[in-house]
Design a protein around this nucleic acid. Sequence first.
DNA 1: TTGTATGCGTTATCAG
DNA 2: CTGATAACGCATACAA
Lengths: 328, 328
Amino acid sequence: MTTISDVARLAEVSVATVSRYLNESGYVGAKSRQSIETAIKELNYVPSEVARSLSTKQSDIIGLIIPDIKNPFFPELARAVEDTAFEYGYTVILCNSDENPTKEKHYLQKLTKKYVAGIILTTILEQESHWKDVKLPIVALDRPIDSDVPTVTTNNQKGAKLATDFLIACGATNLLCISGPEAFVSSQSRVEGFQTASRKKNITTHIIESAYDFDIAEKIIYDYLKNNPSVDGIFACSDASAIGALKAAHRLGIRVPEDMQIVGFDGIQVGNVVTPSLTTVAQNIYQLGQTAAKLLIKQIEGQKLTNESICIDPELIIRETTRKERFE
Amino acid sequence: MTTISDVARLAEVSVATVSRYLNESGYVGAKSRQSIETAIKELNYVPSEVARSLSTKQSDIIGLIIPDIKNPFFPELARAVEDTAFEYGYTVILCNSDENPTKEKHYLQKLTKKYVAGIILTTILEQESHWKDVKLPIVALDRPIDSDVPTVTTNNQKGAKLATDFLIACGATNLLCISGPEAFVSSQSRVEGFQTASRKKNITTHIIESAYDFDIAEKIIYDYLKNNPSVDGIFACSDASAIGALKAAHRLGIRVPEDMQIVGFDGIQVGNVVTPSLTTVAQNIYQLGQTAAKLLIKQIEGQKLTNESICIDPELIIRETTRKERFE
DNA sequence: TTGTATGCGTTATCAG
DNA sequence: CTGATAACGCATACAA
């Protein structure tokens, strides 16, 4: 590994000058510049980011802590973060927390040790606050953690309202809402949206809870529908549950969308590949990640944007599990 | 940020002793140990990995270069790598190359600058060899890059043979193979497996190529099937193409599996959620990632295992796009 | 068993 | 415009 002093020696200047050249800080004469450039080429020199990091106490690494990259919601998010990081010259470390406080804490510490420039955090742990110890720039993604921390989320309530209104417009009157785990603020907001939209004449509502998981949701919904065959519309707080609902309906011989309509939430790819394809409230996942990354980088590069929070509108994507045409 | 000398001062020992304590290298007396421990607690000291890295020229960061985390094959792979890294105390930097040589080269260099401990690489660029410049430990994943480099792959040929044999056993006689891009060695192997298995009496075969992409595959296959309605069995070299085939068949009014059977390759989650669910040759994706990570870490921690390559057997998962029962 | 001194590759300060 | 030189935080050879 060739170092800055090798370059300096070959170029017959001092390391200081080379450093200045490298960072475009301070002056460096024309001939110095020349010889430095050729020396660098000659030696195939690549500066050590580690040494630079030690000296400046900064780095170009961003930590991304998410529950699980296998969860279909996160690959696109991660990709957006990585793309944006790449664009601004940063690099991202991927951490899967499994919603596990211990693991999360571990990563937080590990990232701190590495002088990472900042952290993007997707966590449900509102009350816990290990993240308060870290002095680094943080952005909360998808799930707010504290009013102090800049946050990027989807407008969940609005999305849920969109879905429910649509379900009703399509003729559903007996609505079942599949909420997510109680700990998810996002799920709560979706349920609220559902409730305000369904508070109408002639609309019956039920709410049950399920994990955001195909199989678990399928079982729960299967049992529920067996005992409540009059349900004719489902708003699921996640596409995973929506697909579970679809399967449950299939097993029960309930035709979708003829006998029962379904609207999901998230906009993950699978929704489009399932049969019938899923009508859903799509979060703008890519934009979510991109915005979070940009917000973080802004912070890293100086600005102190406390309290800045961004809420992104989701979009209703009408596919085959609803039958709007009948009512238009 | 508190440093090792803060600890030394408070514990009234030298930094060397603290360092020894930290790394469990060399001796450190009982009372020294005591005071150091309390000092560390007291100060909430966390060693700087950057400084350590500079000093030792090592790090605990692993670079993972994949084409695109959004591609449904990679999240599980990434997760496996990350889990294994975590287990051994490493951390992973995620890089999406988009199969783009320039981007790939960029990442390779960037990772080198960071003194990463090693790199796991999924690339198709056999002939290109920017990776030869990097002296770091490397493991090729999913796609071999050179006989010098330890490689972890699925036994593609065997898997393809498995699929094709099964298709024939299920009564298909007019077989269409959807290959992947020519540049993928893995795809080539699968096609070979298909060919050796279908070289039998009374079996007709066709081979067409498609990108590993739902929509592209759907179009290509739709066109092909329209002109070749006698095809009664499809072996797709990826689940993505298989699902494309499913959709194409659906649009053409071809019933699956009654009129035509389909077997995919990969074993990604969507295959199980599509209707009818996809019979496929499932790669052991998690094991693939895990093995690669372990191999890399072995290398990092001393061993020079050149030429060590591991080939993992895939498994046929029988679901609803085939109709074995008729022939058992 | 412990401490001193030096190096790791850069940045940055401060005289020239 | 340029060059010594002191940090940065830690590891380690060498002394003690």
